[in-house]
């Protein structure tokens, strides 16, 4: 082995450990290796008991998010060569740890569902399949396209101080995905999503720290999505206040 690197990895096996511990492993250094390659090396060659999630290793399945030296990262897209000294790997912050680097995603799945992330059409306004696609211009597509890029990797939740403080907060990805449908020209369901999105646990919890957008590996900009939802909800409020007889559009 030529050059090596040390990884200090969070270990927790609920059946045998009462407290999490850290275990240090020495792995070979290759310039083209990502952190996930090093973790796989440990699993394959040193310690088969290390548990973590991964699959596509090309930054699109969203499985391999971990805290790397305290920062949420997709480990398939974080290169060893960008680090010096011992690298500390922990499960994403803010979630209950199941084991080692694996955390529970139940909370997110429930929240995602609560924003109704699907196309909603008004009663009787569904277009029959025989009549073809809904027309949507490239201009209308770019309006929401950025928010479709979310891979549900949970890095934004791990970075969000609001979620860390109070996990009833709906959170960046779920709100961005709700907003994704709100801004889709084919959708008519914004009113139905407001219940979750404009609630106390929704957008108004967000103080616009912006960390979610900073760590997002896909440039979804959930912080932007949340602020835009706030602006839209505020406009709704004033419309209702000032034009109580009118319908909000």
């Amino acid at each position: 082995m030529d050059k090596t690197m040390e990884l200090e990895i969070f270990r927790y096996r609920p059946e045998q450990d009462s407290e999490p511990t850290f275990q240090t492993y020495e792995v070979p250094f290759h310039t083209e290796w990502v952190i996930l390659d090093a973790v796989n090396y440990i699993k394959d060659e040193i310690d088969g008991t290390l548990s973590y999630r991964w699959s596509c290793r090309m930054g699109v399945c969203g499985s391999c998010g971990m805290m790397v030296n305290g920062v949420p990262k997709l480990t398939c897209a974080a290169f060893l060569k960008d680090y010096t000294g011992k690298i500390r790997i922990e499960p994403l912050e803010g979630f209950p740890v199941e084991r080692d680097l694996i955390f529970s995603m139940d909370d997110f799945i429930a929240k995602l569902k609560s924003v109704k992330p699907w196309i909603i059409r008004k009663e009787g306004e569904d277009k029959p399949l025989e009549e073809g696609e809904y027309l949507q211009t490239p201009r209308q597509l770019v309006e929401y396209q950025q928010y479709t890029m979310c891979i549900n990797c949970m890095l934004c939740y791990a970075a969000c101080p609001v979620y860390a403080h109070d996990n009833t907060f709906l959170g960046p990805a779920a709100i961005a995905l709700g907003q994704r449908y709100n801004m889709d020209s084919r959708d008519q369901g914004r009113d139905q999503r407001q219940e979750a999105i404009a609630s106390h646990e929704g957008i108004w919890q967000c103080t616009f720290v912006g960390e979610c957008s900073a760590v997002c590996p896909k440039d979804v900009d959930p912080a932007g999505a949340i602020q835009r939802a706030k602006v839209a909800s505020t406009i709704d409020y004033f419309k209702e206040l000032l034009l109580p007889w009118g319908k909000k559009s």
Partner: peptide, 22 residues
């Protein structure tokens, strides 16, 4: 074709022509 249109109706963000067709 019908399956693909169905997916369009379910919100898949297909790339578009300037006239709004897929």
């Amino acid at each position: 074709p019908a399956e693909m249109i169905q997916l369009e109706h379910w919100g898949c963000p297909w790339s578009r022509e300037p006239d709004g067709t897929v």
